[in-house]
Amino acid sequence: MTNEKDETNLLIRMARKLFVLRCPESSAEDKASAKAEVLEAVFAEGLAGHYAALCDEFGWTVDQQKHGELKAKVAKDLEQLEEKINDAVENLGDSEVRDALTAKAEYVCKTGAPKKERELAFKIAEDKTVAIGHKLDMVFSQLIMSIFDGDYQHMRVLIERCKALLEKGGDWERKNKLKVYESVYLMATRSFKEAGDLLLSSVATFTTTELFPYQTLVLYTVVCCVTSLDRVTLKKKVVDSPEVLSVIGDMPHLETLLNSLYRCDYAGFFGALPGVADIIKGDMFLEPHLRYFLREIRKVVYRQFLESYKSVSLGTMAKTFGVTSAFLDAELARFVVSGDLNCKIDKVAGIVETIQPDTKNTLYQQTIKKGDVLLNRVQKLGRVIDMD
């Protein structure tokens, strides 16, 4: 793995450690290490609002003395921040007032204050802010807190607010930053195609290191794109991308899966898939969608193989993929029943026959159906007009 400097935001780093603690498949050693790192950050940064909640969630014993020290530290820090705000109001200009209010809002956000208190602190700071760029930075800070909370519904609201602000102004860097935040939201809500498009547009201009390092960006880009891009586009935008090539070598399973998919090396693809699954299993954004990813990527690879044949023996196909005929038969049957593969299996003859879709007939049926819907609406409208 590359030795990238970790510039990830404290709350995002903590969220990843908490993911390890919440994951049933994490080893006892990994959980112990994650717990130690979380508590170290809590005590070092004075995160009083998080401490009691974490102890309650994981059944840790609350150290009352340290908890009291944390609350005292937060109270003292907030008092100092209030003094700076008052001094700025009385003796300094609007920009200094804004900076002081923003500092307090970010501190309240970091230390784990209740959601309403955080939102109020940022609203007060935003009311004193004129520059679009500074307002966007405040929303980005709240987006980080939403990611930590796992509150993707609120994240959607904040993203829309960012877009509205960007319509009034905003620089190129913040526009690119929003793409990455939105791609995180889209991944979390299983919109891999849309997330992949945004990530692809960010790989050459990535600066959002507060969320994750560049190597992780490439991981997300490849995972989202292999399930949504056609083979030609995948080659052009991902396989041959200089940015992807610069770091994908540090993730050998991912590199093998990507290249074997493009080169139609299906045995190599299935050999790399468990390793990629392990990577996904260890990522807090991707892990909830592991089964979906495995289903989608297998659907892609089976469809790609069958497009080259009118019919192929089940044994030959199984050998090509490096799996047993019984496994492949069950796999293909599930995809055929769900309508994801246009083929049929002749179990007696041991042959898989590809059914070429009748695109003209499908288009005709869709047109007829839409026409019927339109006529029904026109008739309803006509009845309303006659009544008037």
Rank of each mutant, 00 (worst) to 15 (best):
S260K: 00
A277E: 10
F293Q: 04
K193F: 12
V352Y: 02
R298H: 09
H289P: 10
A15E: 11
C162P: 08
D278V: 06
D171I: 07
S26T: 06
T61P: 02
K319V: 00
I385P: 09
I85S: 00
K115A: 11
L158V: 08
V38Q: 00
V348L: 12
H67Y: 15
E40H: 13
K135A: 02
V74W: 05
T208E: 07
L306I: 02
L186F: 02
S141T: 01
V42C: 07
E40L: 10
D137W: 01
G133A: 12
M387W: 14
T227M: 01
K35V: 03
L381V: 12
K237R: 15
V239S: 03
W172V: 15
V312Y: 08
S146Y: 04
R291E: 13
K163R: 12
T354K: 10
I280R: 06
G196F: 06
K237T: 10
V157Y: 13
K84R: 12
G322P: 07
E194K: 10
H289W: 00
I159R: 00
T233Q: 14
H289A: 07
A277T: 04
C162M: 06
T2V: 15
D240G: 04
K73W: 09
V247T: 11
F305V: 13
R291M: 13
T359P: 00
